[in-house]
Structures are given as structure tokens and as C-alpha cells.
Design a protein around this nucleic acid. Structure first.
Lengths: 257, 257
DNA sequence: ACGTCGATCTCGAAC
DNA sequence: GTTCGAGGTCGACGT
């Protein structure tokens, strides 16, 4: 970490960092040119620049979630010291893209070798809701019996869960992790129409989601579809129980041996 | 900028920075919990944390273009010092989302008030291609006459440009800034089918793009659609000419007065 | 507020 | 390699 380094001082430091694949953090006054899928010019201003070990580059303005300019991982980095400015170039091939950062003042330059082996777990994807339903089909209704998941309907797309109810009707389930939109309803309708063209049996369509968006309830009614509310908490519970069961199964298994 | 500050030292600094709406840059060892549209847990590791003046939060791992955890602008920030850890909370309402960052070691803490008034210009979006066509419809073909842009087809979506050709046929134009995919072709087909259901006149569908992706040409043929190649350079030219024209109009207007 | 669409979207998986 | 779909997509614009 160096504070207010001159460009002369910074140049070899950055150069070494790039060749050694370290992470570089720069706060400074810069302008940025981009040429590639589109082209852009960013005039002078104070920004944060992150250059990561894998070759990704981010230029962040003081406001806004998204970087104003960037280059995704795998690009080739070079740095030059051209008189008044420090010039960092990041080139990507396929598609050909070039970003040029010109710095005329560096407030802080940090070179670090970050060690990060921490595992990242993202829960409650659509997949986990599906797992929960397959684990405990009563989440849908008593007597529901899944037949297959991820049924391919060729043109129409993929069905999340395909099953049978207690009365022998086919059941097509469309899962949404967030409040279901009209689009989800139309999608489910397409699936059902697609199946009806092939087989001749009564089919129910059920949207499974934590909630419905506005005006979707009447749409479902008009399309002859149903809605089953399922909370993420319920899914958590089922999956947690399943995990514990697996562990106890393991121990039971151990005892038997 | 402080190097290897203790958590005790960091706490008031961060707290003040948050109330004063400054930008905070932290490099340190942390774990992150997220709860909201989904939920996630990120185990201990060394990361870069950016907290911006507008309340956006970014947690960056040493690799990858995207932040591993984040909160977009407008969230409420609080910081606590709970014994062994510095805990930063960022809450967003609507949708309700919470991100908790636990730091047990800070390598560098930077608080800055970035001044960035630089203008950002991005050239050649889909909108600019549209503008270019509306400015000079001959980019499509001689005799093409735009009737309206952004026509809403209710269910089917929005048409980029709707017009008429020299023979009085309707023309629906779908613009893509990048080589057009099969998806674009299907989309245009849906638009045309949607219109055909409403009116009874001959309709042509034209994909406008700098190129076609593989296998799209035969698909277009089978769907009865057309392709008009248009380069970004052409659009640049037209728009540049238009700008110059406007300036000269301005001067002519001045002379008349 | 909700819905739709573009994005230098990015990313990953399937083909 | 290309294509396709999902994303805690984000952000902008229209209703």
C-alpha cells in the first residue's frame, strides 16, 4: 500500500504486480477509453480501479452499483508511463475489445496477493425448491406422485416436474423462486397444450411459487391453471430434515455393519 | 488511508464515513451472509469491499469480474463492533434484502470523497441504430418509409420500427446490434404473426444487424423473413451527418433572425 | 409501484 | 468452438 505515489514510482510497481498476477487497487484521477462491442469515452474524474489476478478489470465511479468501464477475466494487461500519464491497457480477443485507462494522479496504490478459499453457497434456487418437492411431494398436495423431472417437450421447453395426482390426472408443475408473473402462466399453458396434443388424459397445471404477481390470479383462472403457494422456509425445512435423515441413515448403516 | 488498522481503530472511522456518505474501501479477511431474493453464505477469505456514497456495496473476490456479494444503491448501512469482529450490515427494502459482512482482519482501510464530474459517452447502442434508420430510411432500402417506432403488440412485445415499403407492404424491422441469433428471428416471426392476426395486408419482416449468427440465414428463409446488413460505421456516418446538419440549421436560423 | 427490454450484459452448460 | 438460457441479473423507461 502506498499513499500518493508519483507516477514514476507507481509505474514499476504496477508493472511488477501485473507480471506476478497480483491484485492491484488504484484510487486516482483518470480518463478511460473503450473500443469493442461498442465504444465509449469517459472524461477525467476520480475513480477506483481494480485489476484482478485473472485479468479482469473494473473502473468504478463514486456512485452506482455497476462499473462504468470494465474488462472481464482473461484479458492481456500492459502498462506504460508516457510522460504525464500512466496508461494501462487491457486487451481481450474474441470478441476484440480494448480498454485504455489514463491516470494523471494516483491517490493510493495497493498491490496485494489475496488468499480466498472460502466456499460460496447460494441457496434456494429453483432447483432446491424442486428437490424439496421431490423429497416431499405433499408440499403440493396429498397423494401427489412425481413421475419425472425435467421432462423435455422439444419445442415447448422443459417441464420442472411432471406427475400424477390421487385421481390419476397428470400434473404439470412450473416452479418459480420469486412471485410468478403472467409469463410463467403462459409458459405453463404452452407446456400443457403441448402435452395435450400428444396424449389424451386430463392434465392439471400448477404454478408453484412463494407468491403471485399482480393480476396473475385471474389469468390463471382463465387459463384453467392452479396455484400452490410454497414458502422458501418450507423448502428449507424439508431439505434440512432430509439432510439430518441422511446423516442418521449413515449412522444406522454403520450400526448394521 | 490506513494500513493494517485494528478493528477498534477501524470502527469509528467506518462509522463516520458512512454517516458522511464517503466512499469506503476495505481490504480484509471476511465472511458474508446474504438473505433476500435468495440466500447465500460466503466463508472466510480475503476480499475487497467497496461501499459507495450512494449506499451501494460490493464484495469482490480475488478472481472473477462479478462481485460475489453486493447490494445496489439506496440501501441503509450500519456498522457494529462485536468483540472479535467488525460487522457491516446493508439493508434494502423492496425487495427486502440484507447483507452482513463480518471482518476479523483489515489489511487496508481507505475513506475517500471522490470527485468525479467526468462525462461518459457510450456510442452505438440499438437505440442509435434505430435513430440512424429513422434519420435515413434508405439504410433499409429505397422507398422505405417508417410509420412508427416502438409499436406495442401487447402480448408479443415491442416492434423496433414499423413502416411501409415502396409497394405499400407493411414492414416490421427488428434491430440487433450484434450478429442476430435464431432467437431474434423467432421474435420477429412472433411480431409478424401477431400483426397478421389483426390486419389483412402483406407484411415483410426484416432483421437489421451487422451480421447473422451461424445457421440463422436458412432459418430466416424458412420463416419467410429477410435480412438487411447494416454496419455500425454506417450508423455513425448518418448520425454524425445529422449532428452537423443540426448545427448548420442552428446557424441558418441565427442568420434569418 | 409493476412490466418489459436492452446490456460492452456475465456465466455456465449443452451441443 | 458456438449457442442457449439463467441471473439475488441491473438499469431505464413507460404505464
Amino acid at each position: 500500500v502506498s499513499k500518493n505515489p508519483t507516477l514514476e514510482e507507481s509505474f514499476p510497481t504496477v508493472q511488477r504486480a501485473l507480471t506476478e498476477q497480483k491484485t492491484v487497487l488504484i484510487v486516482g484521477n483518470c480518463r478511460v477509453n473503450y473500443e469493442g462491442r461498442a465504444s465509449s469515452m469517459l472524461d477525467w474524474g476520480e475513480r477506483i480501479i481494480i485489476i484482478k489476478a485473472d485479468g479482469s478489470v473494473l473502473v468504478h465511479r463514486p456512485v452506482g452499483f455497476e462499473p462504468v468501464n470494465w474488462q472481464s477475466s482473461g484479458c492481456i494487461l500492459t502498462v506504460e508511463h508516457t510522460g504525464e500519464e500512466l496508461k494501462i491497457k487491457a486487451v481481450r480477443l474474441q470478441p476484440h475489445e480494448l480498454i485504455k485507462i489514463f491516470l494523471n494522479k494516483i491517490y493510493s496504490l495497493t498491490v496485494i496477493d489475496l488468499k480466498d478459499a472460502g466456499e460460496f453457497d447460494l441457496h434456494v434456487s429453483e432447483l432446491e425448491i424442486k428437490k424439496a418437492i421431490l423429497t416431499n411431494p405433499r408440499l403440493i398436495e396429498d397423494g401427489f406422485r412425481p413421475i419425472s423431472d425435467e421432462k423435455n417437450l422439444e419445442e415447448a421447453g422443459f417441464i420442472d416436474i411432471f406427475g400424477e395426482d390421487v385421481n390419476g390426472n397428470f400434473v404439470v408443475i412450473e416452479i418459480k423462486r420469486i412471485p410468478a408473473s403472467k409469463e410463467a402462466a403462459f409458459q405453463l399453458k404452452r407446456y400443457i397444450d403441448s402435452i395435450k396434443r400428444k396424449i389424451n388424459r386430463s392434465i392439471r397445471g400448477i404454478i408453484v411459487a412463494p407468491d403471485l404477481k399482480k393480476d396473475v390470479q385471474p389469468l390463471l383462472a382463465s387459463l384453467g391453471l392452479e396455484y400452490k403457494c410454497i414458502s422458501l422456509r418450507q423448502c428449507f425445512q424439508v431439505l434440512k430434515k432430509e439432510k439430518l435423515k441422511k446423516i442418521s441413515d449413515y449412522f444406522n448403516h454403520q450400526e448394521i455393519r
